[in-house]
Amino acid sequence: MSVEYLVKISKPMLEGAGTTISLFLIAIALSVPLGFLFTLMSRSRFKLVAGFAHTYIYIMRGTPLTLQLLFFCFGLPMLPVIGEFLVMDRFVAACLGFVLNYAAYFAEIFRGGLLSIDKGQHEAAQVLGLSRWQATVKVIMPQMFRVALPSVANESITLVKDTALLYAVAVPELLHYTLTAVNRDFNLTPFVVAGVIYLMMTLALTLFFKFLEKKFKYE
């Protein structure tokens, strides 16, 4: 195994990793706020809103992500009448699938965070004259995110690895280029390189979240 060979296979694989990272960043940037929105909806006083959020979370958590991705990429265009307007670039469709799926998980993580906050915090905020909204933004949310941080870290790492599901909808990413190289060269090295690239990405994430946890320790 020569250095030249490593460089040769790494180049397309790193490009593929670029797609992986793009998907990751888009998915995390959109699914976290969307998830929080679902958390708030699931606690709404309006039964219809809460019911919608609960049903949504149930469906997105209760079916495989692969199925959802296949549905968004290949299923939507088959819908009668509106189908032809729903033909999307497969990467875009995949992003949509990831965002909608991960939002459901983040919604549950944040809900857990909210449940962990003592009701005395709400009471103190109320007695100090804060409105419901002010209390949520200034008192409850910062604490909720702190509690949720380890779970969010966990979910983010899962997301990095789940990007490999792009393979199922034929969007070329890291795993796609890895398999191409393995099949072409009949060599296992690309698998190892792919593993190392995934590990580097998850290491960066792990360190980032460790940093956040330390920063928001409040001690």
Binding site: G120, Q121, E123, A124, P142, Q143, Y218
Partner: peptide, 12 residues
Amino acid sequence: GMVFQHFNLFPH
């Protein structure tokens, strides 16, 4: 103003 048994300070 109210002072609670368990203080209810904002930990963050």
